[in-house]
Design a binder for these strands. Structure first.
Lengths: 149, 149
DNA sequence: GTAGAACCTAAAGTTAGGTTTAGGTCAATA
DNA sequence: TATTGACCTAAACCTAACTTTAGGTTCTAC
C-alpha cells in the first residue's frame, strides 16, 4: 500500500522527477515522509495521481488541477465548484471530440487523395478529379473541408 | 485572390505574427512579395494554411509539417512518403479518439459522483456507494477506470 | 559499519510554439 | 506631398511542463 517515489513512478509510468515536480506544485498536499524526509506514496496519492492524469488528458493546466485538489481538501463546502468543473470539462471534451472527428475526416480524404495519386503515379489525377468521380464517402469529407474555408 | 498578411490573418483567424513565424519556418516556400517586400498570400498559401491547421490538429510539430510541405514541393517522387504520413496521422488520430472516449467516460463518472454528492450534501454518499446502487452506465465507467490501475 | 542504490533539494536548463518590441519602410489617401 | 495605417525584420521575450544537474542524505543488504 505505501510506495516509494520510484515504485510510484514505475507503477504509473510517470517520470520520477515529474512526480517530484507535481509535489513541488502542491499536487500531493498530504503526502507523508519518513523521518529522513523520504516521500511515502499512499493510496491517497496514487488516486490523486489518477485524477491528475485524467485532468491532464482534458488539457487542464497544472494550476487548475491544483485548484481542484485544494477544493477536495476543503471538503463538502466546495462540492458545487467541483461539480461545475467536471461539467465544464465534459463540454470541453465534447467539443474536442467534434473537432477530432472533423480532422479525421480531412485526413481520410488525404489518404484517399494520395492512394489515388500513387496508383496513377501522379498527383494530377486526384488533384483534378471532379467530385462526382470520387467515392461517396470522400465527397462528403471534401465538402466538409470546403465548408471550413 | 491575392491577400495581404493582415487579410489572411483576419480570414483564417491565425494571428498575424504567427503567419510571419510560419513563413520564417519555411511553411510558405513559394510566397511572393511586392517590389517593396510585402508578402502576397495567394490561393496556394491559403490552401497551405488550411493543411497546416489540419496537421496541427493532429498534433504534428511544425518541423514535420515543414517536412511534408517540402515533399509537396519535390513533386510526384514523394507521393509514397506523403501517403504513408497521412495513414500514420490517421492511426494516431484513431488512438487519440479512443483515449478521448476513455477520458470522457471518467469525467462522466465524476459528474455523476458530484451530482450525487451535491444532492446529498456530502461526498460520503457517492464515495461509499456500492457499485450495484449506481446507474448501469456509471457502473461501466467505474469499471473502466479501475481497469486502468 | 560500509557500499551502493535510491532518495533528497535548489536551481538551472530545455522545448515548442509562439508573441512582443524596437526601429524602420511601404503604399493608399487627402 | 504628407500623413498614417499596414507592413517589414531581427532579436528578445514568454509560458507551461518538464528535465537535468550538482551536491548531498538515507536506507538496505552484506
Amino acid at each position: 500500500m505505501p510506495y516509494s517515489i520510484g515504485e510510484a513512478a514505475r507503477m504509473t509510468g510517470v517520470n520520477i522527477s515529474t512526480l517530484r515536480y507535481y509535489d513541488r506544485e502542491g499536487l500531493f498536499p498530504k503526502i507523508s515522509r519518513t523521518d529522513g524526509g523520504i516521500r511515502i506514496f499512499s493510496d491517497v496519492e496514487m488516486e490523486t495521481l489518477q485524477i491528475i492524469e485524467c485532468l491532464k488528458m482534458t488539457d487542464m493546466p497544472i494550476k487548475d488541477i491544483k485548484q481542484f485538489l485544494d477544493w477536495c481538501q476543503a471538503g463538502d463546502s466546495t462540492l458545487q465548484q467541483r461539480r461545475d468543473m467536471f461539467y465544464e470539462r465534459l463540454d470541453c471534451m465534447n467539443r474536442k471530440m467534434q473537432e477530432l472527428q472533423q480532422t479525421i475526416n480531412t485526413v481520410k480524404y488525404k489518404c484517399w487523395y494520395y492512394d489515388t495519386a500513387l496508383s496513377a503515379g501522379t498527383e494530377e489525377v486526384s488533384k483534378n478529379m471532379s467530385e462526382k468521380d470520387m467515392p461517396e464517402e470522400i465527397q462528403i469529407y471534401k465538402r466538409e473541408m470546403m465548408r471550413k474555408k
